[in-house]
Simulated scan of single mutants.
Amino acid sequence: MDWPSVSPDGKYLLFSWSAKRENYSNLSVREDFDLYRLDLTNNDAVPEPLDLVYGELADLNRPRHGAVATLRYVHNETAPQLTDAGDLYFWSERLDAVGERDIFIAERQADGKLAPAKALGTPLNSPLRDTYGWVSPEGGLMLLSYPDRGGSGASDIFVSRKLDGSWSEPQNLGPSLNSAAADFGARFTPDKQNLVFTSTRDNQVLQVYSLPTRILIEDGTLTEADLRR
């Protein structure tokens, strides 16, 4: 299991999992991470693939087989997150998307179903690898990591704001947060007082770090209004 999150109402644990699936039994599937949820209100619950929860039309999980079985990370779906509005965000590699790896959204419709997942356009996604996105429950703030948009090191953490329905140009969160190593997987604690993230800054070993949000506000890379988005 990988990249877990909890739905804003606290009822579901969402995660990526490479479990074997019966409906893929007739396919020659290579290790394939799909999106799942677990009902936290039911002690007897078992993980459910999100394509079975929301239906195949939402295009959430694609089997990794055939021509893409050994191609990079294609058709591995990762890091599902739900917003208060019921929109589902995740990232994946798909040959019909924007770049090599993209952030996707499946928007909640009026009938409660999800629209087909689509890669977010520019400026969030590029022809290269765009991942490690975290979206606020309110749906107006996103933290991402990029290795190729300038900054302090191998991978830096950026912020984007949703303004008038569109995501803004990602802004580097600066040297108080980012290092010369790889920094990624950032998200705010529920009270938004701290930002937690993963980094290789100490001897290239993956560890989790925390930075008080007030430091980013003092630096001018975040505002109090951002924390309400």
Rank of each mutant, 00 (worst) to 15 (best):
D130T: 11
I157A: 02
S176Y: 12
G139E: 05
L177R: 00
G165L: 11
S160C: 09
V159D: 02
S168F: 07
D130S: 12
Y132L: 14
G153T: 11
G174W: 01
D130H: 10
L163S: 15
L177C: 04
F184D: 00
W134Y: 09
V196T: 04
P137K: 06
K192Q: 12
G151I: 01
T200D: 11
L141R: 01
G133D: 06
E169T: 14
V135L: 09
A180T: 13
F197M: 04
S160I: 06
S176G: 13
N178A: 08
S145T: 11
A182S: 12
D130N: 14
S145Y: 07
L163D: 15
R129Y: 15
D148P: 10
K162L: 11
G185K: 00
S176T: 13
D191N: 12
F184C: 06
S160Y: 03
D148F: 15
A182L: 11
K192A: 10
P137L: 07
A154E: 14
R129Q: 14
S168Q: 09
Y146K: 06
R149V: 09
S199C: 09
D191I: 12
G133E: 00
S152D: 15
P137R: 05
Y146R: 06
Q171C: 13
S155R: 09
K162M: 11
G153P: 04
G165V: 08
Y146H: 11
P190K: 08
L144Y: 06
G151R: 01
G133H: 04
D164N: 14
F188P: 00
V135H: 00
G185L: 02
D164P: 06
D202M: 12
N178W: 04
E169S: 11
I157P: 01
P190E: 08
A181S: 11
G174L: 03
P190S: 09
S166F: 14
S152T: 15
S179Q: 08
S166V: 15
L141K: 02
S179Y: 03
R149M: 14
S166M: 15
G140M: 12
T198F: 08
T189Q: 05
A186G: 03
D202E: 15
W134L: 07
L143R: 02
S155M: 13
V159S: 03
F197H: 01
S160V: 05
N194R: 13
G153S: 10
S160M: 06
F184E: 02
I157K: 00
W134N: 02
T131P: 08
